[in-house]
Design a protein around this nucleic acid. Structure first.
Lengths: 403, 403
DNA sequence: TGACAAAGTTCAAGACCTGAACTATGTGTA
DNA sequence: TACACATAGTTCAGGTCTTGAACTTTGTCA
């Protein structure tokens, strides 16, 4: 990024974001609370809040604040008609669109099975366009402007313009998903015509972002296993909004030399030994063909492992070891403060943690790098959605008046 | 980091850094050039430069600017007596201290062999304190204040307060190098008493930072091989000064399953198959006992490889393959835009690049992640020093008047 | 009913930047 | 030699923002 001079209006923009952020985050904060929390003077907060109210983003709520001495606090809240954020999410089975407020409150949702059409991203884009337009229509009825559209997909993304890079699961090559969607969704086309900047991100990236915010550590390594295995690394930035995400294709880390061949052309990728389908097959648990079949089967697997049912228990033991080895390799390269497991492995994180601690390289009894704890996700299936919403919010807070 | 309000003085601080940065970077810039380059108004630049001159950081130089129409430009330069930066660097053989200007110009240097005392960091700290004090003394004679002290060591560092974590080479455990140095260097003690904040960093971190600045890409993966193998990942920040470094213990990535046992307790670490000592031994090249013995032997190895002398050539072929495999694993987790090799492998980067390109995982013929080029370092042995200087400069430019 | 406490507002003062007018200092041409 | 011209650098009025103190508002409590 080029060098940028700063002037007084930049100060205003920054502080507006700060104040709006407090309104969103702190439930029912009053001006005085915001002044205390941000370090701004009360006079400045008055002025900033007035501008946010004038912009239609904030309003004085009549929530009854706990009574005390002195003049009662006037609590602030996001305006009821403030613009919303739409997340269009593609997971293993469903295309889902969710509209939410800047604070993350859900306003509308539509979801539909996409039928997993092999090698046919166009069909999936059509389903996603449907749910997106449905949700956008509901927002139009409610007279809510759409401030941001974010498309979340299970595969890695990259390039400029950003596109889906490759997908093991449904055998896609490089796909301009945003382009396909643009041609099929009137809502997306309208959003972009109005100058909006729709984004395409991978689910592990945003899920990792949400987990990062939840645990509050500096550097976080995230590994997610549901239909496949993915991951990301998140680093806290200098300021709160500056978190940085690196996508990590953890599923394709070659952990077993001369292992079975993977769809990606390598041998012994992590997915080939710890992928969900493999675990189920080895445990004699077949996913049902019905809706949520995979999820239900994985839940059964987790239950069997926790109650010691064979062969699930020993299948998991060896998978946990491979996952721990993978994490150890990655930990050597990014030195995380904490490692979070998402998807069905979240419930089994303690097993991975135990193996992980045992295989740390040490020199003179001292770990080569500090050993990070391996934790299960606290957010569960919502992580990707929450993370995408958080990402959208961070972007919008950088310039609140542009919302 | 906590949320921080911005006020007008923060604007000033930022813009002072911007202007001082231009004075350091652009050789012989005048006020008008700075205004053009930064986007600040000429009036603001006048005022900012005046403040930097008053602070003793900048002065008007009488460099004869290329004549043209109009009033001649008054070129600016770093003040001759501006405070300096001292880097104390520990490498495989030597302890070196270098004092330099904020612009990176060398002012004084002292270097001494430390004799590689096994398991004895105290002895090494003593040698480093000697050269540090020698250089600091020369700065005192020249009436140069020391604005920053940065200690660079070949091993990984971390923790709070920051310390050396572990070292394969000389069998250290965790060592509070800064503390050892503080007790032995009067210059360091004085610097800290005056409120200075000495830092301890690993050589790969800062070398990677220098390479990052040199290639100008967004995300960079750096692997360095000299006495050992280390690395780091560097990510560009939102603004120029925000580059972020992750240390990476690449030498201890286990690449050969059931390989020979490494000093770190694992089997098959990269150092056990591509470490410099291994390559030399297998090629029948023994390092001389004399000064620079290892460096000279490695130069001979590189020459033999490039001219096809056996067994060096085939020893290198298999090492290059292991290095490429390691890079591929790490590239899957941090998605670098470019990979840079430092140390003696810099000259042989093309071989690694060739193997690297051939082993990329692909799905439907599309790489899972974009393939980064593997390049040899352009900076050579200076990388760590240059990077540490750059790092110091970035910190000081964040608040020029505090210099 | 009146003292008191805390919230919120107003406003003068100060810090900064922009942009335009103005001054300084050369080159090029008659 | 003199005068127009071009570019560098300075000055200053105007505008944006924050701070901090004084002031107003709106409750509770004795």
């Amino acid at each position: 990024m080029a060098i940028m001079p700063l002037a007084t209006p930049d100060v205003r923009r920054h502080n507006l974001g700060l104040v709006l952020g407090r309104v969103l985050e702190g439930a029912g904060e009053a001006r005085a609370d915001i002044a205390g929390a941000t370090g701004l003077s009360r006079g400045a907060v008055t002025s900033l809040v007035a501008e946010l109210i004038a912009a239609g983003l904030v309003e004085e709520s009549d929530v009854v604040a706990p009574a005390g001495m002195g003049r009662p606090r006037t609590t602030l809240a996001l305006a009821a008609a403030a613009p919303c954020v739409v997340i269009a999410l593609l997971d293993a089975d469903h295309a889902t669109a969710v509209a939410g407020t800047l604070a993350g409150e859900e306003l509308a949702r539509a979801s539909r099975r996409h039928g997993r059409p092999m090698g046919d991203p166009v069909a999936i884009a059509g389903v996603l366009a449907d749910v997106l337009d449905e949700v956008a229509g509901r927002m139009a009825e409610a007279r809510r402007r759409i401030a941001d559209v974010c498309v979340v997909v299970w595969a890695p993304v990259g390039g400029t313009p950003v596109r889906v890079l490759a997908d093991t699961d449904l055998a896609w090559g490089e796909v301009d998903l945003l382009g396909l969607l643009r041609a099929r969704s009137t809502a997306l086309a309208a959003f972009e015509r109005a100058g909006g900047d729709a984004r395409l991100v991978s689910d592990s990236e945003v899920a990792a972002l949400a987990e990062h915010a939840a645990v509050g550590e500096n550097a976080l390594l995230y590994l997610k296993a549901d239909s496949g295995i993915g991951g990301a690394v998140v680093l806290a930035g200098a300021d709160d909004s500056g978190a940085r995400v690196l996508p990590a294709a953890l599923g394709h880390l070659p952990v077993v030399p001369d292992g079975v061949r993977c769809a990606c052309g390598q041998r012994g990728c992590l997915v080939t030994v710890a992928g969900p389908d493999i675990l189920l097959a080895r445990s004699g648990l077949e996913p049902l063909a019905a809706d949520e079949g995979l999820t239900i089967a994985l839940e059964a697997f987790v239950t069997q492992v926790r109650t010691g049912v064979e062969p699930a228990a020993s299948v998991w033991r060896s998978a946990a070891a491979e996952i721990a080895r993978t994490l150890q390799i990655v930990a050597l390269t990014v030195a995380p403060d904490v490692i979070v497991l998402g998807g069905f492995v979240a419930a089994l994180a303690a097993d991975v943690d135990e193996v992980f601690r045992g295989i740390q390289p040490r020199i003179a009894h001292v770990p080569v790098l500090p050993v990070a704890p391996v934790l299960g996700s606290a957010l569960g299936a919502d992580a990707a959605l929450r993370g995408a919403q958080r990402d959208a919010r961070m972007r919008l807070l950088a310039d609140p008046l542009a919302i």
